[in-house]
Computed example of a mutant assay.
Amino acid sequence: MPRTADHTARRAQIAEALVHVAARDGLHAVSMRSVAAEAGVSLRLVQYYFHTKTGLLIGALHHLEQQSHQRWTERLRGLPDPPPPRAFAEAFLAEALPTDESSRAFHLVGTSYSMLARTDPELAAHPFTAGIDRLEDQLAEALARARNHGDLAPGVDPQLEATRLVMIVNGLGTSILAGHHTTDYAHEVLHDHLDHVFPSTTS
């Protein structure tokens, strides 16, 4: 019988194939057959691991979540616990922008999932679709710490600013994907904004 590690690797292979199809052709182009072809496996194998298309979509969500958690952990590695608020905000913003093939696929597919979840109760129930709320809460906590230490600009509300940062980075991410702005320009915009939010840490 195949080892658990073999099953895990196979599921990850199939989930990654779905991400490739969705990033290249759109989530509407995803089917169990197209994912099987992309992964170089049989349709029967895809059906064995995920049973239905919805099961396949949810499996890919788990895969994307794991990848995002790994990248986020890497970005925070070496920072104090808890990390300085501005460093935390910069790490979040850098992770949220589609700056390479992996983050571009994550942004494209994640946005597509969020839209699909509006009409699919099973996808809507998945924690991935609530990820933006968790990020806002984490940013708000970091901003509240900065306010308590006098590092936040006067009048800045941590919760409102957290929402603003998420919206800014989402808009810039879409602009990058559409080719309207470069990643360098997006980083320049974000760092300029953070200089106003954290005036005491401006270098």
Rank of each mutant, 00 (worst) to 15 (best):
P98K: 08
E38Q: 12
H69V: 06
N148C: 02
Q67V: 15
V21Q: 01
D195R: 13
H63F: 10
L116G: 04
A91Y: 00
T73H: 11
L165P: 07
L152V: 02
L97Y: 03
D192T: 15
S175R: 11
V19P: 01
H187N: 10
P127R: 06
E161S: 07
F92G: 07
Q70G: 07
E122A: 13
L152M: 03
Q66S: 11
V21S: 03
V169C: 08
R77W: 11
R134N: 08
L43V: 12
D120W: 00
K53S: 07
H180Q: 10
V41Y: 01
D195L: 07
P85L: 12
V35R: 09
L194A: 05
A178R: 14
A60T: 15
M115D: 09
H126V: 03
L194E: 02
E16I: 00
F92K: 01
D100F: 07
Y185A: 13
A146N: 08
D6M: 14
E74S: 06
Q66P: 00
P83Q: 07
L139G: 09
M32Y: 02
P98R: 06
H69T: 04
R71T: 03
Q138C: 12
I14G: 03
T4E: 15
F128Q: 05
Q47P: 00
P2K: 02
P85V: 08
Q66H: 14
P85Y: 13
L76H: 08
D25E: 15
A162H: 11
R10K: 11
L194F: 04
L160P: 03
L27A: 14
A60N: 08
L139A: 05
D157M: 03
E188V: 01
V21M: 06
V21K: 02
A17E: 01
R3S: 13
R104Q: 10
H62S: 05
I14S: 00
H28T: 15
T129E: 13
G59R: 05
A5K: 12
V21E: 00
Q67L: 14
V169L: 04
H20C: 11
L190P: 01
L143W: 02
L160D: 12
E101V: 09
A17F: 03
T111K: 14
D195S: 15
I132A: 15
A91P: 04
R3D: 08
G131T: 09
V35K: 05
L57H: 02
T182P: 01
R86F: 06
A37F: 05
G179Q: 03
P121T: 06
L27K: 06
Q70M: 09
P154K: 03
D137W: 14
A39S: 02
S68V: 06
G59A: 03
H180D: 13
V109W: 08
G171V: 05
L64T: 07
D184W: 04
L18T: 14
L152N: 04
H149E: 13
T99C: 12
H181G: 00
